[in-house]
Design a protein around this nucleic acid. Structure first.
Lengths: 204, 204
DNA sequence: CACGGAACTGATTCCTGGGTAAGTTACCCA
DNA sequence: TGGGTAACTTACCCAGGAATCAGTTCCGTG
């Protein structure tokens, strides 16, 4: 008999090494999670899209949570690293640098941000806690910027800073979501657009 | 026998007229939906919190969708009306007026905005479509403002305006969520805080 | 005082989706 | 050439939550 390929029997190996299969699953899962959110993502669909069966996913990722966490870690680590590397400019310039870095990092897989900022994670779940920890890192980075900006205006209200930090990160989230809805736009265009809008807001 | 109250038998009327009961259910449901989102709200919990049984909810609201839609309509109508009534100032003043109106309207039931902006609505569902229609109205109102603001800066890019409108509404959402996390703040304080932050951003 | 309707419930059904048990195929190597 | 292992599958279980059935109690009214 020839090796495989002949679709003779459904069971048995297809010759795809674990590592490769894992990467494939991860990519598809990220897309599904990014589009529909954790709550509305079904592993059955992920398996179908990957052309495999559900148990294989469980074999490699243990559970739905495990799969989400794998997507989250890949996304979170990459984003946090990229953003951290760019925190040196001053005030609003730094903000622009940050979004530029985010767009660049996200270019190959834009859904990563949506996975990180998934709003459908079950309240009190471990997946939510895990996502919050990654977000926390970004919040801490952003917090430096907002405190700085407000201090320069003689505003030292911590609650003001807290709210502004929240606004900042949700603005990034919104912009990335808008990007997902406009797939034809590239990273550079997005960065330029953000710069324009920021300037427009400032030109009081 | 005395009328009710005696907890003798579980079945039978408790003497609460339908209208009153409906209002009570609506309030509790709005809280649950606002806190956990549609996807993670269970009617069993709503019933328990109201001290009634699940079938009564179905009797009055037909389905989970029906209950959500009732909450949505009450919230949406009120918010849209309040915001519409305040669209007369110019540019950023109008933005401030709008958030002030929103805070004032939301004061008695802050979760209303979270119901309207629920991120856990199932993709493609009728509830989502309904919510989107209400959001659309707010987006159209906001759109006028952003186009105006950008035009004043000689920017006539529709995509810029589209993104900025999105940012605007998500900022409102973020601010209201922050408010939910800081229950001790009142509407007036929130308005003042927003004014301060806007000024800080502009003072380039 | 019967009776119709309004307010309500316990128990059940049904279905979706996460998770598992047990078995199948192919390849590698002693 | 026969085990051992890696890569798979079919068929199933089961919890939880939406939705429903078949009533029960109470009150107003002719």
């Amino acid at each position: 008999m020839y090796s495989c390929r002949m679709a003779k029997s459904p069971s048995g190996t297809k010759g795809v090494p674990r590592e490769e299969r894992e990467a494939q699953i991860l990519d598809i899962a990220t897309e599904e999670l990014g589009m529909h959110g954790y709550a509305h993502t079904s592993l059955t669909v992920v398996a179908q899209r990957a052309g495999i069966s559900k148990p294989l996913i469980y074999m490699y990722f243990d559970s739905k949570d495990g799969l989400y966490l794998a997507c989250l870690e890949r996304a979170g680590d990459q984003i946090v690293e990229a953003v951290t590397a760019v925190q040196n400019g001053v005030a609003l310039t730094r903000a622009l640098d940050t979004v530029a870095a985010i767009f660049a990092t996200l270019e190959p897989r834009r859904q990563d941000w949506a996975v990180l900022w998934d709003e459908t994670l079950p309240p009190g779940s471990t997946v939510r806690e895990a996502a919050l920890q990654y977000r926390r890192k970004l919040i801490d980075l952003g917090s430096v910027g907002t405190h700085e900006l407000l201090a320069a205006r003689d505003n030292h209200d911590d609650l003001d800073a807290s709210m502004m930090t929240e606004i900042w990160l949700n603005t990034v989230t919104t912009v990335v979501r808008w990007w997902l809805d406009h797939p034809e736009q590239d990273a550079a265009t997005m960065t330029a657009r953000c710069a324009r809008l920021l300037a427009a807001l400032q030109a009081g």
